[in-house]
């Protein structure tokens, strides 16, 4: 990890990583801004030519959408706000590698969407590699550039969502209608199949729809293939 075995990583190495921990009731009496400023101080000696550490507290509050709550006590935050504070604490040192452990567990759809935007924005704007573990396959598909599927402690797949889907033939679905009659097929090669379809029937084909297998389909297929009893989880990496 960053060229060092984590078991032997020193404090300077630690300063380059960030961990988003699931907060519970720690630092309940602290004000949001106060806590971020305190956590940030430890990173100041680890600035490099390219990276100024820590992140300016007000900028950071702005990017996680907590500016309005800067002076609130941590115990007075809502669940979603608290989660964003966790992320802010995780990235206050401007890490080069950030760990998110099932960050959206227990979120409502809106909070989940907001959180995804936040992570997406981080990965796009900052020079940070994010390692995110999740059981939510839509989340992985939406956020990750590279996906690793772990089952029973072994990596059984590694690639982008598209690549993973392509490794399993017969997972695409083609639907069309001809003469008012609906058809559905799952061909091995969807592109070739559609070409042939048009050659054969020409303009008689209507309402054509080709659907690539979702990550969930791929996941299920792969886990079955791996013949493990219990799927353990799924890790996604986004760069």
């Amino acid at each position: 990890m960053l060229g060092v075995d984590p078991a032997h990583g020193g404090e300077a190495w630690r300063a380059r990583t960030g961990v988003v921990l699931q907060s519970w009731r720690d630092h309940a009496k602290w004000q949001v801004r106060e806590l971020l400023a305190q956590q940030g101080r430890y990173y100041a000696p680890y600035s490099t030519v390219g990276i100024t550490r820590p992140w300016d507290v007000d900028d950071l509050l702005e990017s996680v959408g907590l500016t309005k709550h800067a002076r609130k006590r941590v115990s007075d935050l809502s669940g979603g706000q608290r989660r964003r504070l966790d992320v802010a604490i995780g990235i206050v040192g401007r890490p080069e590698l950030l760990f998110l452990d099932e960050p959206t567990t227990g979120f409502d759809p809106e909070a989940r969407r907001e959180f995804h935007d936040l992570v997406r924005g981080l990965a796009d704007r900052e020079d940070v590699t994010i390692l995110l573990t999740t059981h939510d396959l839509n989340e992985a598909e939406r956020l990750a550039d590279r996906i690793l599927i772990l089952t029973g402690g072994t990596i059984i797949a590694d690639g982008s969502a598209d690549e993973l889907a392509r490794t399993l033939p017969g997972q695409s679905e083609v639907r069309w209608t001809r003469d008012g009659q609906p058809f559905t097929r799952s061909p091995e090669n969807a592109t070739a199949f559609v070409r042939e379809l048009f050659q054969e029937h020409g303009e008689a084909i209507e309402d054509l729809e080709v659907r690539r297998a979702s990550l969930e389909d791929t996941y299920m297929a792969m886990v079955h293939q791996a013949e493990r009893r219990t799927p353990r989880g799924l890790a996604a990496v986004t760069a």
């Binding site: 404090e11 300077a12 630690r14 300063a15 960030g18 961990v19 921990l21 699931q22 907060s23 519970w24 009731r25 720690d26 630092h27 956590q39 430890y42 990173y43 680890y46 604490i89 040192g93």
Partner: peptide, 20 residues
Amino acid sequence: VEREDGTLLRAKATPNGMLG
């Protein structure tokens, strides 16, 4: 208490956090 509630874990994840 603070080991139970994760305060210490946060300190551990911060460079020189345990000392602070």
